[in-house]
């Protein structure tokens, strides 16, 4: 098997073997180090960058979504608060309006009642005034009549009084339309009385 021309020891290489091996290893090394690794590394880096970018984008989108949700919730809460505020305000407004209306009605009622009171008072007063005037006139007429008779005669006196009372009765019972007649009668009596006092 071992011939003279070939090296017998497999662990002592011939120079040509080393040279060829150098060539092959150099070819492998140049191809892999200069071409293969940079190319694949570039691709891997690019892919990693892309994935990272995608992840980042997803993160950002998620953050944005979360923020939007938070914003919505915030707005919702604000709207709720606002609605509650409005409701409360409306309630208080309503109660205020009611109380206002109540007080107004109260005051109105009081005013009306006062007016009525005042009217009544005025009517009473005018009645009193007119009554006083009438009574005065009547009294004056009666007195003038009594004086007009000018006699101490009891019979005559009582006659005068009776007549006066009759007249008075007539005046009281007579309807409003007959008043002037009574007054005219009274006036006549007055004039008669005046005439009598002159005499």
């Amino acid at each position: 098997m071992i011939t003279a021309e070939t090296p017998s020891n497999p662990f002592i290489p011939a120079p040509f073997e080393i040279i060829w091996s150098l060539v092959f290893v150099a070819i492998f090394a140049v191809f892999i180090i200069k071409y293969l690794m940079p190319k694949m590394t570039a691709i891997l880096d690019e892919r990693a960058a892309k994935i990272e970018g995608g992840l980042e984008l997803a993160d950002k989108a998620q953050a944005e979504a979360a923020e939007a949700r938070a914003e919505t919730e915030r707005q919702l809460a604000a709207a709720r608060r606002e609605a509650a505020g409005i409701r409360e305000e409306a309630n208080s407004d309503a109660s205020q309006i009611v109380t206002e209306a109540k007080t107004k009605a109260q005051s109105e009622a009081t005013r009306i009642a006062e007016n009525a009171q005042r009217q009544i008072e005025a009517a009473r007063k005018s009645a009193v005034v007119s009554l006083r005037a009438d009574v005065g006139a009547l009294a004056a007429e009666l007195a003038s009549r009594i004086v007009g008779e000018s006699l101490a005669d009891d019979a005559r006196q009582s006659r005068v009084i009776d007549r006066f009372l009759d007249e008075l009765d007539e005046t009281m019972t007579a309807p409003a339309g007959e008043q002037p007649a009574a007054e005219a009668a009274g006036g006549a009596a007055q004039t008669a009385g005046a005439r009598e006092s002159e005499a």
């Binding site: 071992i2 002592i12 011939a14």
Partner: peptide, 26 residues
């Protein structure tokens, strides 16, 4: 062993040869 040290296709495969081309190199 000659399987591992075949004859030269060209050049020389002697122990002191600087150029040789054999089957393994092919």
């Amino acid at each position: 062993m000659s399987e591992f040290f075949p004859d030269a296709i060209f050049g020389s495969v002697a122990a002191d040869s600087w150029f040789g081309f054999d089957r393994i190199i092919f």
